[in-house]
């Protein structure tokens, strides 16, 4: 089957069997190995990418369903010399140890901050209708779909909190 889509701003045409996941297509067909396979079953978040502005698990997404989609992977968020704010913050706060979960953490957090800026509540939000404030508790809840086997959670939350604060101030303006 042929699938036409945009990956990190570049138009692509990929020929693959129907059963090929977006995750395997990114890694094996395109050679974008930043996106990681942890569990392959939706349980860890290492494979998180951003499709049409939304964070999803690429391991539970078939490539062939993504006709016309705009996919952004960790490589598309920034590169050495022009890192994204979150990529910088993960470095500055030591938000990783082995780094395996990091691309998924950064893609997930990038889209999560936008969800909060739109006012989406979470399970721990006191009010469903109030403004979303990204406290540490809120960040942990909203990021619970990204596991870290090295348990760098405190530093991951620090990194996200720094960037979220700036973004939420901007959204409030």
């Amino acid at each position: 089957m042929k699938t036409t889509l945009t990956i990190n701003g570049e138009p692509r045409e990929i020929e693959a069997e129907a059963r090929v996941t977006l995750l395997d297509a990114l890694r094996h067909e395109i050679g974008l190995t930043g996106t990681k396979k942890g569990c392959d079953h939706g349980q860890c978040g290492a494979c998180t990418v951003i499709v049409d502005g939304r964070r999803i698990n690429s391991c539970l997404t078939l490539l062939c369903t993504q006709e016309g989609a705009e996919v952004v992977t960790v490589e598309g968020l920034g590169e050495p010399g022009r890192l994204s704010a979150l990529q910088e913050a993960f470095l500055a706060q030591d938000g990783f140890q082995c780094g395996y979960c990091t691309p998924g953490q950064i893609c997930s957090a990038t889209a999560m901050i936008e969800e909060a800026a739109k006012g989406w509540p979470s399970w721990v939000s006191e009010s469903l209708e109030g403004e979303a404030v990204l406290s540490r508790e809120e960040i942990s809840e909203r990021m619970s779909g990204n596991l870290c086997r090295c348990a760098c959670y405190p530093n991951i939350v620090d990194a996200i909190a720094k960037v979220a604060e700036a973004r939420m101030a901007e959204a409030a303006e």
Partner: peptide, 18 residues
């Protein structure tokens, strides 16, 4: 609100987007 809460109690942000 019971429906919002139940949905937000399930799975993860990524999975709920799908």
């Amino acid at each position: 609100p019971v429906l919002s809460r139940a949905l937000l109690a399930g799975a993860s942000g990524q999975l709920r987007n799908m």
